[in-house]
Write a protein that binds this DNA or RNA. Structure first.
Lengths: 191, 191
DNA sequence: TATATTAACTAATATTATTAGTTTGTGCAA
DNA sequence: TTGCACAAACTAATAATATTAGTTAATATA
């Protein structure tokens, strides 16, 4: 054990995630985080590399949590069912952890290899789900980008209040997934 | 004419848009904007209502510019062609004006009626494009949300460096639009 | 028991947004 | 031409932020 084992990086990042989900990603400042932890803000520098380092750690934590949610949702399922459940789990994660999800989608720099790896894991999971469709390598990757695009876009627009009309949002989500799956069935049949 | 007609709100917002596109939306601070305009930051308060007011004005400017781009892209076109061109124009706008696009998608508060109206105009344009599909009112609105979701998701992920793999991004975009249009053709045929 | 390690601290600095109050340039009317 | 009203831009000051430097003190271990 370290001397005075009060905080560690995990505790700091989890508190930051709590703060982000409660008050929004932009509200995660070193000042607010230090207050949340009952500590002075310079003390945080012992655990994270300033505000940029905190953001990077949150991004990584968010991606890994997202991946776990997706894996849990598709285990034991296959084909269209797995695809549908993965999309729903993606949105579910973004809804229950809005701040952490926002952190997960922050711009990433090329030197953040851990973050890139975590993102790749999500891509690989989706690729596995797509194997029944027997797509070419490129088409499978295009499809993964497609899934990520409409799932992220939906979450992002919903979160920022752009779906203001009086129309059930879960219905919209189901509609969108339907259109995608039907389009994919045609793509698969093309070969 | 006003006395000392150096700046006005339009000039301020346009400079902010320039700054956002060059250095990113987060880099638009009153300090950087004042420096860009050769003025002291308190002077900006004569034209915009602080940083929140500046952001709101940028959001509005972004949405209106986006709408113009979409209208220009679909004029004289119809059906599938119009749909495809609208999606491409959407992405094109986000690519050429990344900071302004980011501003356009900022969370909006219920009291920002002008911003909400601008967003509604985009929705209405898309609804018009969809009329040939003869959808029910609800399905048309679901479809608009779908289009906005995958277009925005694609732009957002591309922008934040999440499409890192060595795979042509325009091909992915075309693939995505194809899947959507094929799925919609089935939806339309269902009736 | 003494020491090395390191967590957390205080103090200080730079940058930011913001408010209050002042100066000053411009257009218009007497 | 002169003076006034208006408003744009200013300076000064305040509060909050991130960050760095250097200090204190708690703990594990030799």
């Amino acid at each position: 054990m370290s001397p005075r084992p009060g905080l560690d990086q995990t505790a700091v990042v989890q508190a930051a995630a709590r703060l982000a989900d409660r008050d929004g990603f932009h509200a995660v400042t070193l000042a607010s985080l230090a207050a949340e932890l009952g500590v002075r803000s310079p003390s945080l520098y012992n655990h994270i590399n300033g505000l940029p380092g905190l953001h990077a750690a949150l991004t990584l934590h968010g991606l890994r949590t997202l991946l776990q949610g997706l894996m849990k949702a598709v285990v034991g399922k296959s084909g269209e069912d797995a695809l549908r459940q993965a999309c729903l789990a993606y949105v579910e994660f973004a809804r229950t952890h809005p701040g952490l999800y926002e952190a997960a989608l922050q711009p990433i720099a090329p030197e953040q290899t851990e973050v890139i790896q975590a993102g790749d894991s999500v891509v690989e999971l989706l690729l596995q789900i797509l194997t029944p469709y027997k797509l070419t390598t490129d088409d499978a990757l295009h499809t993964v980008r497609c899934i990520r695009s409409f799932c992220h876009g939906f979450c992002s627009l919903e979160r920022s209040g752009q779906f203001a009309m009086n129309l059930n949002r879960d219905d919209s989500l189901a509609f969108m997934i339907d259109v995608f799956i039907q389009g994919m069935n045609l793509k698969a049949g093309e070969v």
